[in-house]
Design a protein around this nucleic acid. Structure first.
Lengths: 222, 222
DNA sequence: AAAGTTATTCAAGAAATATTAAACAATTTG
DNA sequence: CAAATTGTTTAATATTTCTTGAATAACTTT
């Protein structure tokens, strides 16, 4: 979940960034609409947008984004000090997903961001992943082998899911880290190894299908 | 659900149209009662009608509609800046289904439209939810286990209902917050835990079916 | 065999959840 | 309406579970 915060109050930006990153979001900041428009906006999943800014207003920026196919679908939460109904209505009319008046509590912002994020993420379609008698139920976050439930931790689950969604392909440790641990968390190569070792044991007899390709990485080979 | 919005403030119309369409309603707009009366009004399921308009007032238009057999049954929600009691009574006396004073929040309008729409459409069928001897009566807001009434608070009831409507699926705490507490109320992750703990105890021996999936959330597993 | 790479083990500690209790809020009762 | 009851939230603490990375052993490759 990548979030772009656009606000000319730098202190406020920092506070938002810090707290949202704490919540596990990936946050970047721009201090003006102009700066923001130079960024790769399409790569964000949510925009927190101040309405009152120096040059270009948040409204103006929003309406630009709504006109571009690449960005029109991105949810926007407006931040504003103004509380006139008019502003509010204008905000909604150009497709704001939510609206928060300053001063606001960080909790409130985090909760709203979560709400939008939950609403936005399409309900996972029940794609079935598996190999022979090893079946993954993504909704249940469960793995069964020969009908027997195998207890996996989150990391292990994410790993086996990644491998089965990429059968017959060697994934580098960096690939694996990025997908399983995300961009925020940094672990060593050895940590990947350890987790794969644990996974291999737990999913016996399928452990051997996770093969090591020395100097390249790991992959699940049918 | 087709909705006709009649109001001479074009901006407001746009806002209403945008937001109601976002909610999945089919919306068309007229900027005066005269224009509206030229349309095929009988084809709409609900009319949002401004009272104060240039030529013909919303009241006048409503009374015309109420005299026509083809349109007399169509629910009308009046929009108005006036807040005198008299207006309100007059509004209802000619068959308004609801009454919203300007300035209003979009949320409020959407909620009222939904309410009318729900009232109008066939009464929700009494879907039954349950698991083994744990039975939920959604209308009565009651839960029985082995035929014995289990006293649950509102929060607990909403929780068990959510879980049973989503059996065999892990719900994240955010999902749960959004569904049980709504988008307006902000509670902490720990609050979710505490409420689930209470619920588990109360619905013994079914408590254990609400499983914890560390790092993912909770789910009711058959 | 040397160098490079991966596997294994394990203790420290990090992270997540459960539990408890206290404070606050809402509702009901007298 | 005040008091009593019931319900809810949150902080604090306890407990459980999971993860990491160092150390070292075991492979692989050249």
């Amino acid at each position: 979940m990548k979030i772009l915060v656009v606000d000319d109050e730098k202190d406020l930006c920092e506070i938002l960034q810090f707290n949202l990153e704490n919540e596990g979001f990936d946050v970047e900041v721009a201090h003006s609409a102009e700066d923001a428009l130079e960024m790769d906006i399409a790569s964000y999943n949510l925009i927190l947008l101040d309405i009152m800014m120096g040059q270009m207003s948040g409204f103006k920026m929003a309406s630009i984004l709504k006109k571009d196919n690449a960005t029109k679908h991105i949810p926007i939460i407006f931040l504003t000090a103004r509380d006139k109904e008019n502003d509010m209505l204008t905000g909604f009319s150009i497709g704001a997903d939510d609206y928060i008046s300053k001063p606001f509590s960080i909790k409130e912002v985090v909760a709203r961001v979560r709400a939008v994020s939950a609403r936005t993420n399409a309900p996972a379609l029940n794609e079935t992943v598996g190999f022979k008698s090893l079946l993954i139920d993504i909704e249940k976050k469960e793995v069964k082998i020969e009908g027997e439930y195998v207890k996996l931790t989150k990391t292990e689950f994410e790993l086996i899911l990644l491998f089965l969604q990429n059968k017959n392909r060697i994934l580098s440790r960096s690939d694996i880290m990025q997908k399983v641990w995300g961009d925020e968390v940094f672990v060593t190569d050895r940590t990947v190894d350890v987790n794969i070792a644990r996974l291999r044991k737990k999913i016996a007899p399928y452990g051997k299908f996770i093969v090591t390709k020395q100097s390249y990485g790991y992959g699940f080979m049918e």
